[in-house]
Simulated scan of single mutants.
Amino acid sequence: MKEILAAIWGYRHFIVSSIKNDLRARFARSKLGALWMVLQPLAQVATYALVLSRIMAAKLPGIDNRYAYVIYLMAGMIAWSLFAEVVNRSLTMFVDNGNLMKKMAFPRVCLPIIIGGSCLVNNLLLLVTAVGVFLLTGQPLSWVMLWLPLLMAINLAFALGLGLILGVLNVFVRDVAQVMTVVLQLWFWFTPIVYMPSIIPDRLRAVLEFNPMMHMAVAFQDVLLYGRTPGIPGLLVIAVAAAVLLLFSLVLFRRAVPEMVDVL
């Protein structure tokens, strides 16, 4: 672990410059540039809000704001978009950078860090946009938003741990990326983002408790919509899951790196 941290620190300038280059490359020759980072999730929120707001609005107790369901959606989407983007991009990070790994000497662990940093910038822009929407709709901001950096850090750690494992496996079995595309779609609907957990039958709600992203989405909704401290037990669940995944992914990564370069 010390070697990995030392490698990351030693190549910190390489990581930062790579994140900047990644962001520039994604929007090269684009007229709207970084706006595309937030337009897609906002369009998704708008679609769900138009279709479901009248059905769901009455099921948000204690919220007087008529845009409460929109805020509920955006809070959940902020949590989900960071997780999903990191996992999706991690799936093919070694395959996409195979030539770079063969030609250039650098710690391979920099690749997931670069992806995580780029996705985090995207998510921060989405969060800033969401806060602007909240202010326009009359949603008050609260001191509990100070929890957001911790929530984003736990969310990022969980996504990187899972993404690194899947990225390594995808080098050897390319079907992993295809399967995970379907799994993430199902996972989204298994997470209370477009619906409230309260509308789920009790026996099914118990199953939802095993979904770490449910706890993350609920934590963002608590902070951004209800203005209350997120539930500590739920945060502990996903924090422990993130720690276990990160540790396992780093062990798997260190053992697989020599063979990965040969396969690529």
Rank of each mutant, 00 (worst) to 15 (best):
F248S: 13
Q178W: 09
L127E: 00
Y226W: 10
M93K: 09
F134P: 01
I63G: 05
V171Q: 06
L236Q: 08
I199W: 06
R24T: 02
L224T: 01
I165W: 11
I238K: 03
N97H: 14
P212H: 08
L23A: 01
F106M: 14
V244E: 08
I19R: 07
Q185Y: 07
P212K: 11
M214R: 13
P201T: 04
A239G: 11
F27K: 00
G138H: 13
G161M: 12
P61S: 14
G62A: 10
P140D: 09
A7M: 14
A43S: 10
K59I: 00
I154C: 07
L127Y: 09
L39I: 13
M214C: 11
S81D: 08
V109P: 01
G33R: 07
F188R: 06
Q178K: 14
G10S: 14
N170V: 07
V176I: 15
R203K: 15
V244P: 08
M74P: 01
R89M: 06
E259V: 09
G116S: 12
A256S: 15
A177N: 12
S90K: 07
M214L: 11
E259L: 14
L160H: 10
V179A: 15
M152Q: 10
N88M: 10
L135P: 08
L32Y: 03
L186P: 01
C110S: 13
G227D: 00
A256M: 14
Y72W: 15
S81W: 00
L156N: 04
D22V: 00
N65I: 08
P258H: 07
T191S: 10
E259T: 10
F106L: 14
A241M: 12
V223S: 01
R54N: 14
T229M: 09
L186S: 03
P230H: 03
A79I: 01
L247N: 13
L235A: 04
V251M: 15
L146W: 03
I15G: 02
D96S: 15
Q40E: 06
G161P: 07
H215Y: 03
R24S: 05
D222A: 10
H215P: 03
I165Q: 13
A206E: 13
V183Y: 02
D222H: 04
N88G: 11
V87K: 04
E3M: 12
S53F: 02
L146C: 09
T129E: 02
G163A: 15
L166S: 06
A130W: 03
Q185W: 03
L111T: 01
M37R: 02
L125G: 01
A217Q: 02
M213C: 06
V109Y: 04
M101K: 09
A159R: 10
L146Y: 00
D96E: 15
F94V: 08
M101N: 05
V240S: 12
M145C: 06
Q40G: 04
I8T: 09
G163T: 08
I63F: 05
P107N: 07
F83E: 01
G76F: 02
S198N: 13
P197F: 06
I193Q: 02
W189A: 05
W143V: 14
L127A: 12
S30V: 01
S118F: 00
G227E: 00
Y195P: 03
V131H: 07
D202H: 12
V128P: 02
V16H: 12
F188Q: 02
C119W: 01
R255A: 11
V183G: 00
I165G: 06
G132L: 13
S17Y: 11
E3S: 14
K2H: 08
I4E: 04
M101V: 11
S81L: 00
